[in-house]
């Protein structure tokens, strides 16, 4: 009774937020889960229970399999590249050098731009007679079919994402680096540790949480890749850059195939759920390193 009285105000105060969450998040998820077991004729307002047929259709669909592969390819490569580059830049910016005050805002500028603006800039650069190929020509290199070559298109998308989002990883890691007390590094230096040993055995373990946070946040974001594909390649050439998000969009909003689109969404939700669970375990639940 006392516990109820103690928790009642908390429940009353949070109930509006919980209601909004239930309406905006839980209801659509439940509906998608239900729809994934139905064949839905969207125009005729009719639906028929088909069990696991939509899931079987997905597994038989080569485009879906390709979309899963492309999504994972993009997510893993882009996230690792962004965190790796972010770490390098953070180590650089931890030091003092001339022009740092100008370089820092310029470095984080791409992150401030909307993805469509970024894509529009890069679309011009990727043009066969555009900026990048002119740059290559100036050093006697052959031009590259950045977006029209199926083996190159995904790497081009990764390049754009790395350009835009490395600053985010950089800022997270820089915050971690700046929190390391100078005395620890100085003491190691006095004890004769080399620069590499100080980095490998002191700096890296102390910023491991920030690295993990940056990696997980970027993985979750890159896993949802949609807008860059939409603006730059449309999923092509062929299906070379088709991702889970664009596959679902195509099935759901272009063809109105609600059942298969819902099944693909459930699949995507499960993978995203694993990533989120990792994020919660590694970043939120784990106590901070002392």
């Amino acid at each position: 009774m006392n516990a109820l009285r103690r928790h009642l105000p908390l429940f009353v105060l949070t109930s509006p937020a919980l209601c909004v969450l239930a309406v905006l998040a839980l209801y659509p998820i439940a509906q998608v889960l239900i729809d994934s077991f139905f064949q839905v004729d969207y125009a005729a307002h009719s639906r028929q229970f088909v069990g696991l047929t939509n899931y079987r259709t997905l597994l038989d669909d080569r485009v879906f399999a390709g979309s899963v592969f492309n999504t994972l390819h993009f997510s893993i490569v882009a996230s690792l590249a962004e965190v790796g580059l972010g770490l390098g830049l953070a180590l650089l910016f931890r030091r003092t050098f001339a022009g740092k005050r100008i370089a820092l805002p310029l470095l984080i500028l791409p992150m401030m731009l909307s993805t469509l603006v970024c894509s529009s800039i890069w679309r011009g650069w990727f043009n066969y007679s555009g900026f990048l190929n002119s740059l290559l020509a100036s050093v006697n290199c052959a031009p590259v079919e950045w977006l029209s070559n199926p083996h190159m298109a995904m790497w081009s998308l990764i390049l754009v994402d790395v350009w835009q989002w490395t600053p985010m990883a950089f800022l997270i890691i820089l915050a971690g680096l700046q929190a390391i007390p100078e005395e620890i590094l100085e003491a190691a230096h006095v004890d004769g540790a080399s620069a590499w040993q100080r980095f490998w055995q002191i700096t890296l373990p102390l910023i491991s949480r920030q690295l993990m946070l940056a990696l997980l946040l970027r993985s979750i974001d890159t896993f949802k890749l949609f807008d860059k594909v939409y603006a730059l390649t449309g999923g092509g050439p062929g299906n070379a850059t088709q991702t889970l998000s664009t596959y679902i969009y195509e099935q759901g909003f272009q063809f109105f195939n609600v059942g298969p689109a819902s099944a693909a969404s459930v699949f995507m939700l499960l993978i995203a759920g694993v990533l989120v669970a990792l994020y919660v375990r590694e970043v939120i639940c784990k106590p901070a390193a002392q």
Binding site: G236, P237, G238, A240, E250
Partner: peptide, 14 residues
């Protein structure tokens, strides 16, 4: 959309 996908697969030697 389906036809467009396959035409492009042929066009790009995939």
């Amino acid at each position: 959309s389906i036809l467009g996908d396959y035409l492009q697969l042929a066009m790009t030697d995939q």
